[in-house]
Amino acid sequence: MTKDKDCEELLEQIQELQMRVSFQEDNLQELNDVIAEQDANISKLQEQLRYFAEKMKQLESASSLTGPVSGDERPPHY
């Protein structure tokens, strides 16, 4: 009788482990999906940052061609 009981306990432990592994696999897939989404978002943000950095360079370059910004000029009474 103890062999049957031992076998039943082992089967229960195996089933428990199988459920845990399945749960872990589901969690791992969800985390992988989140990481993939975050990677795509980071790539988009980096692209936007490069775009705006280039725009800033263009604006700075254009403003240096037109002269100083009005806040940088001396008032006429000096």
Rank of each mutant, 00 (worst) to 15 (best):
Q18G: 05
Q18F: 01
M19C: 02
R20W: 02
R20N: 12
V21E: 13
V21W: 01
S22Q: 09
S22A: 08
F23Q: 07
F23I: 00
E25L: 02
E25N: 07
D26V: 01
L28H: 13
Q29N: 08
Q29K: 12
Q29R: 11
E30N: 08
E30M: 05
L31F: 10
L31W: 03
L31T: 11
L31Q: 06
N32H: 15
N32Y: 09
N32C: 09
N32K: 14
D33L: 10
V34Y: 05
I35N: 06
A36D: 10
A36W: 00
A36L: 12
E37C: 09
Q38K: 12
Q38N: 14
D39W: 00
D39Q: 13
D39C: 02
D39T: 08
A40Y: 04
A40D: 05
N41P: 00
N41I: 02
N41D: 10
N41S: 13
S43Q: 11
K44I: 04
K44L: 13
L45K: 07
L45S: 05
L45E: 03
Q46S: 11
Q46V: 02
Q48M: 10
L49T: 06
L49C: 05
L49I: 07
L49Q: 12
R50L: 03
Y51G: 05
Y51R: 15
A53V: 08
A53L: 03
A53I: 09
E54V: 00
E54D: 07
E54W: 06
E54P: 02
K55E: 10
K55C: 04
K55S: 06
K55V: 03
M56L: 15
M56E: 15
M56R: 09
M56W: 01
M56I: 15
K57H: 11
Q58F: 04
Q58C: 02
L59H: 04
L59A: 08
E60P: 00
